[in-house]
Amino acid sequence: MGLTARDQQLVAAIQSGLPLVSRPFADIGARIGLSENETIERIQALLTDGTIKRLGVVVRHHELGYRANAMTVWNIPDDQVDELGRRIGAVDFVTLCYRRPRHLPDWPYNLFAMIHGQNRTAVLHNIESLIERCGLKTIQHEVLFSRRRFKQCGARYIDASPRQPAEGRMHSQSGGPP
């Protein structure tokens, strides 16, 4: 798409993380033949045009004590999904909210909202509150709690280094009632 070869190199150079050194952008620039200033300018441009959604820390929520996470899915009439999607997405404990396609008849749900919490009780309480606040009483929905996380690694879009072997890590998600 619109990325220049230089920007692709830049994206590849930072995709696994920013260097933890005093002048990280000088460090990155040196790797790909850009000055510190040019590196800063290009990263700012990529943030402005939305290629980089944000720069910062990505937490492992399980390790932070958010042991329950539920993917809530909703079957919302097509003519209401934009309005309700915006309303649900604006609720503070909803961490992701997407419209996605149905697969009828097996899968009637077209709106997905992710809700994290310290435990299942807290998550279920939030869902009740969501139904109340967004007027979802008549909307068919299901709650898909996660049981185990098999893999969580940053998506890699540009292959700049040798592929790492697929991880086989398994974390059991205990801590919530069954």
């Binding site: 995709q15 993380g17 939305g50 959604k53 944000r54 720069l55 820390v57 969580q152 879009y157 540009i158």
Partner: peptide
Amino acid sequence: SRFGPMYHAERL
């Protein structure tokens, strides 16, 4: 898990 960018996949 990471300290770095979150990309807009489609834009890349």
